[in-house]
Write a protein that binds this DNA or RNA. Structure first.
Lengths: 247, 247
DNA sequence: CGTTGATTTGAATATCCTCAACGTGCGTGG
DNA sequence: CCACGCACGTTGAGGATATTCAAATCAACG
């Protein structure tokens, strides 16, 4: 246990971090590190780690919302369904991101959350979280930050779905993934897609065939190297140009 | 000043309500009415009422986010822009709804908020709000509720943009507006659109001509009566059927 | 009235989807 | 170890939906 001193507060780091600390520390907006007492309190509210096999469901639309979940390992998708059976993926989640936040409105989940691969999530009791947040300004602030983040992302997605063409959407998707992997300390240029073409299509409002065709086209154009789900970005500038409406 | 008693708490109603009370009371999720002491505290944090003429901007993308705004009268649109100049409306806001919430992530607004007509909004200082929320569990809960609501709505919009066809999108838009007017105590069947065809199109990911054609088609089909921006829903069931993929 | 901006309507076109066939990778069981 | 089956991915041809371009109409306002 080592203590550091900063102008603002005493910062705490654990030599052997609780598995969930990474969630708070990597993706919480500010600060990255936390005062010792607050960190310990936060650990208290993230007790259970849920393990899910590929395809298993963490929670489902309509269930009463008592917990939010922080992705600890692996990846998830959030799916919105409609009465007539259609489904749409509204987000993919990598470690450090929270799921179930939309349930804050009615205390009922509005999405299904499914594991894209064998994954782990930290369970956070909402009631406890709210109670604790009342005492810990930093935590309160971070909750707002995370949920605001999720909202900002959803609005960006609205822009993508409403204003961009198919090729722009896919380019943005790849660049966005790249950025998120980079933020996690992984290679931004080479990564493995955890989701199928159909799932990418669902998220982007396209059909799987369209996604596949565009992948091939990007590959031909030398923008990326694609082999199944293995992706390598070879011309980042080229991809970014696509976003500016350049055919 | 009259006091009512409920099983849960003492409820407070003002005979001459503060202009902003309506915001909290109409759209805040629960409870509709609030304990007297909390209501007074809430009034404290909503001090300034901002008046805007049609087309004026309340805040703009990139500005540092120090306030959120509650629509008090009139209506607003939230617009997301991209570097290349394209714009997309990601939401329309009627009285009782909050704007600027996405700024919680980076403390910078990510949308422009513009008045669709002469309107008023209540300014809420975020710092004060957070401080007060720490002392008032009800308020804290309601903030979470409102922002969760906004997120749920954004995800629904993602579904609409990604999975629905043009006619379904417009039908849902009209029904959604109807519901929101109803929640405000206005007629759910007859109302005036505050936005242009182009703005509807932007929100729904369609061109203004498409919106116009569909309006005419709905009118022909006897689903609605449309005269410019005056709308009357004449066959609600018919509109709802459209949502279930029935051409 | 005439001008301006918004809306409606039509015809031609582009984008993306549907349907269909084929290829590839991978696990299972012979 | 190979063959098979199955899920996933690729590719092509034709078709549907929404867009683009263009023109006409309407409403508001000086």
């Amino acid at each position: 246990m080592l203590m550091k001193s900063t102008p603002a507060a005493t910062i705490h780091r654990l030599d052997k971090p609780h598995p969930c600390d990474v969630c708070f520390q990597s993706r919480f907006c500010l600060p990255i590190a936390l005062p010792a007492d607050e960190l310990n309190r936060m650990r208290d509210i993230m007790q259970n780690t849920v393990r899910l096999a590929k395809g298993e469901r963490l929670f489902e639309s309509g269930q009463s919302m008592e917990k939010v979940y922080s992705v600890h390992a692996g990846s998830f998708k959030s799916v919105v369904g409609s009465p007539d059976g259609r489904q749409q993926i509204v987000g993919f989640h990598v470690p450090g991101e929270l799921m179930g936040l939309e349930g804050f409105s009615t205390r009922v989940y509005m999405t299904d959350a499914l594991a894209l691969e064998d994954s782990e999530a930290c369970e956070i009791d909402v009631r406890t979280l709210e109670n604790t947040a009342r005492e810990l300004p930093t935590l309160q602030h971070q909750i707002h930050c995370l949920i605001g983040n999720r909202l900002a992302r959803a609005q960006q997605d609205q822009f993508v779905l409403g204003s961009m063409q198919a090729d722009e959407r896919l380019a943005r998707f790849l660049l966005d993934l790249s950025e998120r992997y980079k933020a996690r300390g992984l290679s931004p240029d080479a990564f493995v897609l955890r989701m199928s073409r159909e799932e990418i299509g669902s998220y982007l409002g396209l059909k799987l065939e369209t996604v596949s065709r565009l992948m091939s086209r990007f590959h031909q154009a030398g923008l990326v190297q694609v082999a199944q789900r293995q992706v390598r970005i070879t011309d980042r500038d080229g991809l970014e140009e696509l976003l500016s409406h350049e055919a």
